[in-house]
């Protein structure tokens, strides 16, 4: 890559990053349509150019509709950056997190990341509702690719931080959303990572959790890590972040300090309503 990656400071560099979702709706994705109907006839043309809530809808050269969930994102994060993602529903916050995690590979442009990435995602995925909290810790750690010895070593710390006590031996279907977030957060932050990616889920924790989590995160960031948080909670963004970007319809509108971006967002909210 010839985009000037600073080996010491830079953790993430996105250059002209595009993420484009093909939409094979209820009709498009079936073989019937591919074989018997011209794809052009099945496209609801009225969607093209629409910008209601999500990214821009456009027509690809092969006739398939596509949502430009992220368009032309240029972003450079260095170690110590705690970035808040701000934007309306469907502005591309989650898509950006997933792209950073390497899940959606760029349709165009490039993305360089350096270091171990830890995502905080919906913890119950892939789990039977009858599984206990302890089993959940085990499965999730393995899912994050952590060696068994490290899991065993970190488990007491996870148990202590999440404060679930005896609940850990109960089935996870009895847990509240907030309890799950505590557990997910405890697991994600129990291991060394260079880049932490938090989705809006984090907002489900209560005030005492946000406080505790903030303390734990401060340790992390001191060890020169990068944090990216998507949240609608201005409190979390103010408390945790030292930088923010504003996304709108998949485009990066503003990249500045937290207060100015929050102000700009507040000023733009009325335009989303109409």
């Amino acid at each position: 890559m010839h985009i000037g990656f600073d080996k010491i400071m830079d953790a993430i560099i996105a250059k002209n990053l595009d993420i484009e979702f093909p939409i094979y709706g209820t009709q498009g994705r079936s073989l019937r349509h591919l074989l018997f109907l011209s794809p052009l006839t099945s496209i609801p043309k009225r969607f093209v150019g629409s910008k209601s809530v999500g990214g821009t809808v456009k027509e690809r050269s092969d006739g398939v509709l596509a949502v430009n969930a992220l368009h032309n994102i240029n972003l450079r994060l260095k170690n110590g950056d705690r970035l808040g993602l701000i934007g309306h529903n469907g502005s591309g916050k989650t898509t950006l997190l997933r792209a950073l995690a390497g899940i959606y590979e760029p349709t165009n442009g490039s993305l360089v990341t350096r270091g171990k990435i830890m995502p905080l995602f919906n913890i119950t995925e892939g789990m039977a509702p009858d599984a206990t909290g302890r089993e959940l810790i085990q499965v999730r750690c393995v899912l994050l690719g952590i060696e068994q010895a490290d899991i065993t070593r970190a488990t007491p710390d996870i148990i202590e931080f999440c404060q679930l006590g005896d609940y850990l031996d109960m089935p996870i279907r009895t847990y509240s959303q907030g309890m799950l977030v505590r557990l997910a957060f405890a697991i994600t932050t129990a291991f060394r990572a260079d880049i932490l990616l938090f989705d809006e889920l984090i907002g489900a924790g209560d005030a005492s959790f946000v406080e505790q989590a903030h303390k734990r995160l401060s340790d992390f960031v001191e060890r020169s890590n990068v944090l990216v948080v998507a949240s609608h909670s201005t409190e979390i963004i103010r408390k945790w972040c030292n930088r923010a970007i504003l996304l709108e319809h998949g485009e990066l509108l503003m990249d500045a300090d937290v207060e100015s971006v929050l102000d700009a967002y507040a000023a733009r909210v009325p335009t989303y309503a109409g």
Partner: peptide, 16 residues
């Protein structure tokens, strides 16, 4: 080909 490390290190993503 541009990198020499495993996934917990540097990774470049672009259209392969």
């Amino acid at each position: 080909p541009m990198q020499t490390c495993l996934d917990n290190s540097e990774r470049t993503l672009m259209r392969p």
